[in-house]
């Protein structure tokens, strides 16, 4: 009798703890089926719409997010470089490529848990554009020539590229968007650059 009760209690405890923990874990992942992935960047166009999946709905309720509407813009997040290594604010990265058509875009660095910003960031009206309309930005903890994005020595960082008033935020024209590549040039304490291939790039 006592054994049955203990077992029932065990099953119940396991179910409640496991169920709660699994929801918490799933919400932390934030990669729903509706995520829009381009290279290292991910956006969540359905986040905050009535059609969003239950995980997105629970996530915005838990974290007090008010996602941008389709007429406002769309935010792209990157937390890994092009080789799949976690971005760190102590490293130097080169962002190179084109940004989709938008009236305005901003780029900022925040901590992985979104609690801290490294700096206000850069925006399209105050950076040097290349002749082919592409951009080249260096994200580093210390000042760099050209377009410099301060990474503020955050241990783990996320790059946030937000496009404002852009057709990409609508349902159409999502197929062929291209966003800047994020390449690691080196990390602090490891010399100017870690892999030899990057060192050559850095010298040139």
């Amino acid at each position: 009798m006592l054994k049955t009760a203990a077992m029932a209690l065990g099953v119940l405890t396991f179910a409640i703890a496991g169920g709660g923990a699994s929801v918490w874990y799933a919400l932390g992942q934030m990669t729903g089926p509706a995520a829009l992935r381009t290279g290292v960047w991910t956006a969540y166009p359905e986040l905050g719409s009535a059609e969003a999946d239950p995980y997105s709905k629970a996530a915005i309720a838990r974290d007090a997010v008010l996602p941008l509407g389709p007429a406002e813009g769309l935010a792209f997040y990157a937390d890994r470089d092009s080789t799949g290594i976690r971005l760190s604010g102590r490293c130097t990265y080169r962002l190179e490529g084109t940004v989709p058509l938008a009236r305005l875009w901003t780029l900022h660095v925040r901590s992985a848990d979104a609690s801290r910003h490294a700096s206000p960031g850069l925006h399209s009206m105050a950076i040097i554009h290349r002749d082919d309309n592409g951009v080249e930005i260096t994200a580093a903890p210390t000042p760099m020539p050209g377009n410099w994005l301060r990474t503020g020595n955050l241990r783990e960082m996320t790059l946030v590229l937000t496009l404002y008033d852009t057709p990409v935020a609508g349902r159409a024209s999502r197929a062929r968007i291209s966003l800047p590549e994020v390449t690691r040039l080196g990390c602090r304490g490891q010399g100017p650059s870690a892999p030899p291939a990057d060192r050559q790039d850095g010298m040139m």
Binding site: G48, S49, A50, P67, L68, G69, R103, Y164, D165
Partner: peptide, 18 residues
């Protein structure tokens, strides 16, 4: 540049414009 969004009580975006 400015934009406006209307959300329902659950934080879902109902209407937005710039």
């Amino acid at each position: 540049f400015w934009s406006v969004s209307v959300y329902n009580r659950w934080g879902q975006n109902i209407y937005s414009f710039n």
